[in-house]
Structures are given as structure tokens and as C-alpha cells.
Design a protein around this nucleic acid. Structure first.
Length: 572
RNA sequence: GCGCUCGUAGCUCAGCUGGAUAGAGCACUAGACUACGAAUCUAGGGGUCGGGAGUUCGAAUCUUCCCGAGCGCGCCA
């Protein structure tokens, strides 16, 4: 059993026992009680907030509770000292062997160390990327892609049943423009001189689509009116673009479970169905919106339209579902899409959006609340921009000219694993500088390298050994530098679980940097003091224990990287 | 004008859902290479957590009001 759960279990027994004895109230809620690593070494090996958290429900003073608890905690096997500190913290010092035994936990579970059941098999649907199918993925899409995919990996590792989903916006005006742009390229392929007018997509990538259209249809649609070819070309172009997007995702290590089509929702009446449902529940009405304050559009006219009562669910105003021409707004189809996801998932939804969709969060959460009847069925994580840099200077991009940097370009430049890790070295709502030079640099500055190097070093030791013995005396591991690594290793399961619950995959990346740092420190301690080297020629007992520690470290680093779908390197 | 996100060391950022004297890296200063990989490590200085008020045993974290930055604000997606 993991050391933290061990103490939490023991503590639960103590609460029960004290309750039975009438010394404290019975059935106190101990869900907020935690045993954790104190930041400060002076505070011992483990600390608990139990006395402070339980003071109010127990109607006792924290210090008095702490005294009661500490008497009992002292009797737990392996506890060597208990002290009460500050406002009521209880600090435990424990036999180093208890820590060292954590290594056995790691080695036994191996690549499943840290796997947990926080999700208890609940379904969760994570929607990410969802870039418009009008061109290849560009670099900016990579962040949301990685954040969503890493979160999917993390939650799957933590016992959720995850569906990874991409919403294809193949129904709006954007894809008409795509079709017209493809038509031009089609004409070009048939030998016409073309000029790409403003408002169409100028990208070279459509040449290929044009040639394929020419090969398939010959001159059948050449110089024909738009209504003859538009829907055909739209379908064809979207499908071609999606093939490319799927290839890009695959190159990034991403395999979606489902590509959901907006067009299908509109065509099979799902939008109508979702709106009808809202209507039946009284969340929809015909009304007139106030013009937006401050920046009033030139062509504003008050107009009666179909509105969703978003303001009943925390949004600032009600939101239109229908355009003036009678077609659905993007919001309406997205409402139906979320309704569809709720029905399919029977569990929580997570959307990964770019910051530019920040204004959309309230209404979407409002809609999901209205449809599900529950708050918090939808979590939306916004991801901030990525600044592409080359040696500290911004990489120039002109989307208008169609020469933006694609995901493919970046993968070819630095590799998918580097992208995946770097994208997680900032919280999702912080902007991130992605510098081609820095992310491939072999230095302490580069977290990917730093973590991979730690793994490679550990592997190097293992290669030079005669194998890791299975029966060892772990009590010889008691140097502070060794214990520091072990403590981090044993906090891995806890860390994974809380990161999964918080929907924050970046914590994994930060943990790995910490672990790498701690391991590098231990390594270095062996340089200053030969007694601390992993392999000691005339001391097979110590060597054996340390090889297990090295093995455990490499396992946890590899597992952490694996959760993020990054391959650990055995050699640099 | 309103809303959302953010503001933490000179710089780049963490801070485990309210815990102890706020932590890393870079940079700076002083050290460590007869190497289980020095592509690294050790030590040190450096903070009114944007500002004020509030909530309580306890606030970077929660509430509120200011200041500043980014994003968004009917019939684009």
C-alpha cells in the first residue's frame, strides 16, 4: 500500500476508535484530512492538517485534537516521532525503511504504478482540436491538441472511460468558401489562369484538391453555375482536408475516437430536436435583444428572433438560436452537439477551447446546464496562445497570404515528443513561448531534455549493472538525497489522481521536472561523495538497494511520459 | 461600457482546490570535472504574491472595489 493511503487508512481507524471511546464526536467527515510531504524538512517526513480541519466539526480546539491524535499516531508501526506545530499541524517522523519500502511498491506495479481509480469507470467526453476543416492544422492548434490528448491520457490512467472527440464544423459559410476556393483550383488544374479573390483561401494545399477534382470530374463542372457544383465540391474538399488533418494528428501521436459532423446534426434534425427539448422545458422564446453596449454595430436593427434563456443559467444575456434567414446559428448547432454528447456520454463533458472562444463559455455552460439539469456537467478549459520563436525572435506569419506555420512544419523541425512536452510546461491559460532553438537545446533550460536525460542516465546505470536484484535490504537507503527521490516517487500516485480530478495535465510535466531534478542531485552527490554512488564495488548490499532505486526512478519517469504519450529515451 | 482570463524574485514560471518562514529555473556571486554520462551539480543574495478592504485559527488561493495586460461582445465558426 502506498504510504499516504497507509497513513490515511490508519487515521480513519483512529477516528473510529476515538469516537467509540467517546473522546471525540462520532462519524467525523475526514475527507479533507490529508497526509502530505511538508515543504520544509524541519517539519518532518509527513504532516497532517487533521486537527485543524476537524476542529470545527468536532467542536474542539485544534491543539487539543492534535494532542489526542498524536498520542494515537505514535503507536503506528514505523512512526518514530510525532510533534505538534504551529496552529495544529501534526508532524511525523518515520523510520526511513517505510520510505524505502515504497520502492517495492513501484517495482511491483511497474508501469502501472500510479494508475488509480479516481474516475471509477465514469464516462467522460473530451472534445479538442476541432479546427475548421478548411486547411491543414497550423501551429496554434497544436497546444489545444496536446492539452486535450494529455488530459485524455491522464484521465484514462485514473480510471475514467474517456472518449476523445473532434467536432467538424462542416456546415457553415466557411466550408462554402472552401468549396469555392477548391473550385478555382479545379479550374486551374484544367488549365485556366486563375486569380484568387479576397475572401477565398489562398493556400497552396488546395492545388492538390483541385487536381483531384479535375481527375474525378473532368470538365463536368467547368464554368458551370455554382449551385451545380457547390455541395459536391464542399463535401469533397472537406473530406480531403480531413484526411490531412488526421495525418497531422497521427504525427502528433493523437488518435481520435470520433469525428462528429456538424452537417449531419443539421441534416438529420438534431438541431431541431435539441431546440425542441429546450422549448419544451421553457428555456426558449421569441424576443428582441438589446444592442451590445459600447461598440454598437453599424447595421444594428432590433429584430425578433428565437432566443435561449441563457441568462437564467448565469450568462449575461439571452442568446440567439436562429439567423435572420431562418438557418441555425453556430450556437444552435453547438447546443445540439452538446446535447448529443450528453446523450451518448451519460457523463461529464470537457471542451478544450482557444482563448478567442472565451466569450462563448458562459452560454455553452448555460446550455448544458439547461439540458442536463445539472451544474458542472461541462468543464471548458481555455488554452492561451503559443508564440513561435526562433532564437528569441518571433517567427513571422501571415495568415492572409496563406503561409502560416503548420503543425507538420513544427513536427518536422523538433519532433512530436518535444512538442507534446513543451506544450505542457505552462498552465493552459498562460501564453507560451515556443522557441525552436530552445526546445531542442541540450541544457538544463530545456525541460524535455532535462527529463529525458534523467531517464537516460538511469538506464545507463542499469545497463552497466548485472541486472537489478529482486531481493534487497532497502534499509540501507537512508541518505537525505536518496530519501528525497523516494519521497517524490511515492507522491506520484497522489499527484496523478489530483491532476486528473483537476483536469490539469501540465502538473505531470512539472512533476517530472521535479523528479528529474531530484535524481540529478542524487547523481551528483555520488560525485562529491563516492560512498553515495549507485554501484559500490565492495558493497553488493548497498549496490542492490540503489539499483532498485534507480530502476524505480526510471519506471516512474517513463510512466509519467507515457501518460502524456511521450516516449522515454534510453539514450540521448 | 460589459464579460472572461491573467498579474507571484531582474527575467520565464510553479504553487497539489484555504495551511506552517511563498518555491523552481535563468541571470548574478562563490564553488565542484583522475566522468557509474559535468549535456550536470552544490551554496548564497534577491519578494509589501499589482493595490486597498473583507471573510477566519490561517489568504498568492475565497468575496468586493480600484489599477494594468490579453481575448470576446446579434444573423463568423
Amino acid at each position: 500500500m502506498n504510504i499516504f493511503t497507509y497513513f490515511e487508512t490508519q487515521f480513519a481507524a483512529i477516528i473510529l476508535q476515538l469516537g467509540e471511546a467517546g473522546q471525540i464526536k462520532k462519524e467525523l467527515d475526514i475527507s479533507r484530512v490529508v497526509f502530505e510531504l511538508p515543504r520544509d524538512q524541519e517539519h518532518g517526513d509527513l504532516a497532517t492538517n487533521a486537527a485543524m480541519v476537524l476542529a470545527k466539526p468536532a467542536a474542539m480546539k485544534p491543539r487539543d485534537l492534535a494532542v489526542l491524535f498524536s498520542e494515537e499516531l505514535k503507536t503506528i508501526d514505523g512512526v518514530v516521532d510525532v510533534e505538534i506545530a504551529g496552529p495544529g499541524f501534526i508532524n511525523l517522523r518515520i523510520n526511513p525503511l517505510l520510505w524505502a519500502r515504497e520502492i517495492s511498491e513501484v517495482l511491483t506495479a511497474a508501469h502501472d504504478y500510479g494508475r488509480n481509480n479516481a474516475g471509477q469507470g465514469a464516462n467522460v467526453n473530451i472534445e479538442y482540436v476541432s479546427a475548421n476543416p478548411t486547411g491543414p492544422l497550423h501551429a496554434a492548434h497544436a497546444r489545444g491538441a496536446v492539452i486535450g490528448d494529455a488530459l485524455a491520457g491522464l484521465m484514462a490512467f485514473s480510471g475514467w472511460n474517456v472518449t476523445k472527440e473532434y467536432y467538424v464544423n462542416d456546415a457553415g459559410g466557411q466550408v462554402d468558401i472552401l468549396a469555392r476556393s477548391a473550385y478555382l483550383r479545379y479550374c486551374e488544374a484544367l488549365g485556366d489562369d486563375i486569380e484568387i479573390e479576397a475572401g477565398l483561401y489562398p493556400g497552396e494545399y488546395l492545388k492538390d484538391v483541385g487536381s483531384k477534382l479535375a481527375a474525378k470530374y473532368g470538365d463536368k463542372y467547368h464554368k458551370r453555375p455554382e449551385e451545380e457544383w457547390l455541395s459536391t465540391f464542399r463535401l469533397f474538399a472537406v473530406s480531403e482536408i480531413l484526411v490531412g488533418i488526421k495525418e497531422d494528428l497521427k504525427a502528433l501521436g493523437i488518435q481520435m475516437d470520433r469525428f462528429a459532423s456538424e452537417r449531419e446534426l443539421v441534416e438529420n434534425g438534431a438541431v431541431q430536436k435539441a431546440v425542441d427539448k429546450l422549448k419544451a422545458d421553457g428555456h426558449v422564446y421569441m424576443g428582441v435583444l438589446e444592442p451590445p453596449k459600447g461598440k454598437e454595430p453599424e447595421d444594428w436593427e432590433p429584430r425578433e428572433q428565437l432566443l435561449f434563456r441563457a441568462s437564467n443559467f448565469g450568462d449575461d444575456t439571452d442568446r440567439p438560436l436562429q439567423k435572420s434567414n431562418g438557418s441555425w446559428t453556430y450556437f444552435a448547432s453547438d447546443v445540439s452537439y452538446h446535447f448529443n454528447k450528453l446523450e451518448r456520454t451519460k457523463g461529464q463533458l470537457i471542451d478544450i477551447f482557444g482563448v478567442d472562444h472565451g466569450g462563448y463559455v458562459k452560454r455553452m455552460k448555460a446550455a448544458v446546464e439547461a439540458m442536463s439539469g445539472q451544474k458542472d456537467m461541462l468543464d471548458i478549459r481555455l488554452c492561451q496562445l503559443v508564440n513561435l520563436m526562433e532564437n528569441g525572435k518571433p517567427v513571422k506569419m501571415s495568415k492572409r497570404a496563406g503561409n502560416f506555420v503548420t503543425v507538420r512544419d513544427v513536427i518536422e523541425a523538433v519532433g512530436a515528443d518535444v512538442i507534446r512536452f513543451i506544450m505542457l510546461t505552462r498552465r493552459n491559460d498562460q501564453t507560451l513561448d515556443f522557441d525552436y532553438a530552445k526546445v531542442t537545446e541540450h541544457s538544463r533550460d530545456n525541460p524535455v531534455f532535462y527529463v529525458q536525460y534523467a531517464h537516460a542516465r538511469a538506464c545507463s546505470v542499469l545497463r552497466q549493472s548485472d541486472g537489478v536484484p529482486s531481493e534487497v535490504d532497502l534499509s540501507v537507503l537512508k541518505d537525505p538525497a536518496e530519501l528525497a527521490v523516494i519521497k517524490l516517487l511515492s507522491s506520484w500516485p497522489k499527484m496523478v489522481e489530483s491532476a486528473a480530478r483537476a483536469h490539469e495535465a501540465h502538473r505531470i510535466a512539472f512533476f517530472l521536472v521535479d523528479l528529474a531534478s531530484s535524481f540529478h542531485s542524487l547523481w551528483n552527490a555520488g560525485r562529491d561523495n563516492p560512498d553515495l554512488r549507485f554501484m559500490i564495488d565492495d558493497n553488493p548490499v548497498v549496490t542492490a538497494a540503489r539499483l532498485q532505486l534507480v530502476k524505480a526512478t526510471s519506471l516512474v519517469i517513463a510512466t509519467g511520459l507515457n501518460v502524456l504519450s511521450i516516449k522515454a529515451l534510453d539514450e540521448m
